[in-house]
Structure formats: C-alpha cells, structure tokens
Simulated assay, not measured.
Amino acid sequence: MSEDSTVFLAIYIITFLIGFPNAVLAFCSCIRKIHRKPIPIDIFMLNLTVSDLVFLTFLPVKMKEAADNMIWNMPYILCHINMFMFFLPFYSSGLFLTAISAERYVCIAFPVKYKSPKRIIYTTFICVIIWVLVGVTSIFPYKAAYLDSNDADNTTNKRHLVEEPQRCYSNFTAKQLRELLPARLSIVVVFFLLPLLICCFCYISLICILMKCPLFKRQRKLRVVGLIVGTLLVFAISFAPYNASHIVVGFIKKENPYWRIKTLMLSTLNACFDPIIFFSYHNKEYHRNTRECTESSS
C-alpha cells in the first residue's frame, strides 16, 4: 500500500471513529431539543448532523478503497452510489453551515422578526430546498464524467469510469474533462464562493454587533467571537483547498490535478469538526451572551 493510501486510510478511520459517535450524539440532542421547543437554528443543526451521518455511513467504502491502494475492487454499481453519497453531504454541509451563519445573524440583528412563529415553516422549507438543490446538482458532474462526446457523428456514448487499473471517479478523457470542468466550476461558485461570502458577511456583521453590545464584558465578547471565527475557519479549511483545485488548476489549466484527491482529506475531517460546532453553539454561555445582546437590540 502506498504512502498516500496509508494516509487516506488513517484519516478515514480517525474521522469515522471520532465523527460517527459524536454525530449520533448531536443527532439525538437535536431531536430532543426540537421535540421540546423547536427553533430554526436547531432545525439547521439537525440537517447538518444528518448530512454528516450520511457521509460517515458510507465512509467505510472509502476505507476499503484506500486499503486496496485506491484501486476499485468492489462492484461497479457501488462506485456510482459511492460518488453520489460522498458528494451529496459534502456540498450540503457547506450550505447548512451557511444557513446557520445567516440564522445567527438574523437572531441578533433582527430579534423581533426572528421570534415570528412562521420561521419554523420557512426554515423547514429552506432545508428541503437545500437537499433538492444538492441532490440535483450532484448528478451533473456525475453525468459529465460518464459522457464521451463523439465529434464525428455528434452523438454521446457512455464510457465506464472504472477501467484497468480500476479506479472510481479518477480516469478521465480529454472530452470528459471538457464536460466535467465547467460543471465543477459552477458548483464551486454556487456551493463554495457564494456561501463563503454569505458566511463572512454574517459573521463579520455579527462580531460588530456583539462588540458594541454593552451588557457583557470584553472577555465574554472574545469567547463568542472566538466561536464565530472558529466556525468560519472550519468552513474555509474544510472546503477551500478542494474547491481551489477546481478553479486554479482544473478550469484554468484544463486538467484533473493529481493532488486534487489529497485535498479531500481536509474535507473529510469536516465530519469531525461539525459536532464541535454543534456542542459549542449549545453551550450555556453562548446562549446567555446572545440572549443578552438580543434583548439590548430589541
């Protein structure tokens, strides 16, 4: 087994052992809180946790692939399923983190509107839209990668991704890349750049509001700011390298960079970071600080 495969296997195992029990615990906590008193932020947290659980449930398939030195020795149909179930939570996590940032901002900046009972309905609708959007979008790079345009007769022929040596979602022809790279670029814009801008706006605005809040001391402000900055860093560190491979090398140089798969290690670790965000948000001090600031704003 190569060094890269060993590192991947270690990352997958660590992520699964740490992320899965914490995700289950976060899921149970969300269900309990929503059953007791549903609020929009908990609904977003629940969907984020479900996204992580989907990812972690299929992570053993990636472990098997890494243990086989990144050679696909499993049924071919499982490659299709693995691709879809890997990228579905990958992109949905980013959108739910963005929704959480927007919800936190609205909670502080517009406390009166935040208390509207219709927000639960709106939040549920937004979650459904996110799942549908991610599910539909995940199909496009999948289709682009499996299509091989024939310029001679202007038809489109299917070409198997898994070839000798068998690899899943790795070997692409030049024609496939012409279809795949623009699809990846559009996904980067919709699922990374725009969410990143929204997160930055919401969290920077939230920090400004909290720093002006006169009801609690500087040390307490810094703790909340630290949580906000940490959440933003998790988003950037988890998703920036992978998406950069699509922009800098993928679309500009028109190639599938060999180091692209290595950036997935940071994205995989996101499943460990999300439960930390969940439990950090649900600590009593954060709620007390935001409640006091909300009361002063209203």
Score class of each variant (00 low, 15 high):
1 M>L: 09
3 E>G: 11
3 E>P: 08
4 D>V: 12
6 T>G: 11
9 L>H: 11
11 I>Q: 00
13 I>E: 01
13 I>N: 09
15 T>P: 02
27 F>V: 06
29 S>C: 14
30 C>E: 04
30 C>G: 05
31 I>C: 14
32 R>W: 10
42 D>P: 04
44 F>V: 09
44 F>H: 05
49 T>K: 03
51 S>G: 13
53 L>H: 00
54 V>I: 15
61 V>A: 03
62 K>W: 13
63 M>S: 00
65 E>K: 01
68 D>Y: 01
72 W>D: 05
75 P>C: 07
75 P>Y: 00
76 Y>Q: 12
80 H>M: 08
80 H>W: 13
83 M>A: 13
83 M>D: 11
84 F>C: 10
85 M>A: 06
85 M>E: 06
86 F>E: 13
93 S>K: 08
93 S>R: 08
99 A>N: 07
100 I>V: 05
105 Y>D: 05
110 F>N: 14
113 K>F: 07
115 K>E: 15
116 S>C: 11
116 S>T: 07
117 P>F: 01
121 I>D: 14
125 F>W: 09
126 I>V: 14
127 C>N: 10
128 V>Q: 04
128 V>S: 00
129 I>Q: 08
131 W>F: 10
133 L>R: 09
134 V>W: 06
134 V>N: 03
135 G>M: 03
138 S>C: 09
139 I>D: 05
142 Y>D: 00
147 L>A: 14
151 D>E: 13
152 A>R: 10
153 D>W: 09
156 T>H: 12
156 T>M: 15
159 R>L: 14
161 L>A: 07
164 E>L: 12
165 P>Q: 04
165 P>H: 06
166 Q>L: 08
167 R>E: 12
168 C>Q: 03
168 C>I: 04
168 C>L: 00
172 F>V: 03
174 A>G: 08
175 K>I: 14
181 L>N: 01
185 L>F: 10
189 V>H: 05
190 V>P: 02
190 V>S: 05
193 L>H: 00
194 L>Q: 02
195 P>S: 03
197 L>Q: 02
202 C>N: 11
202 C>T: 04
210 L>W: 10
213 C>K: 07
218 R>P: 07
218 R>Y: 11
219 Q>N: 15
219 Q>S: 15
220 R>V: 12
220 R>I: 11
222 L>V: 12
223 R>E: 14
224 V>G: 07
225 V>Y: 08
232 L>E: 07
233 L>A: 13
233 L>T: 06
234 V>W: 06
237 I>W: 09
241 P>T: 03
241 P>R: 04
242 Y>H: 15
249 V>E: 15
251 F>Y: 13
253 K>S: 13
253 K>C: 10
253 K>W: 11
254 K>G: 15
257 P>G: 02
261 I>A: 14
264 L>F: 12
264 L>S: 14
267 S>V: 03
275 P>A: 01
278 F>S: 04
278 F>K: 04
280 S>W: 10
285 E>K: 08
286 Y>P: 04
287 H>W: 03
290 T>L: 12
292 E>V: 08
293 C>P: 04
294 T>N: 12
297 S>C: 13
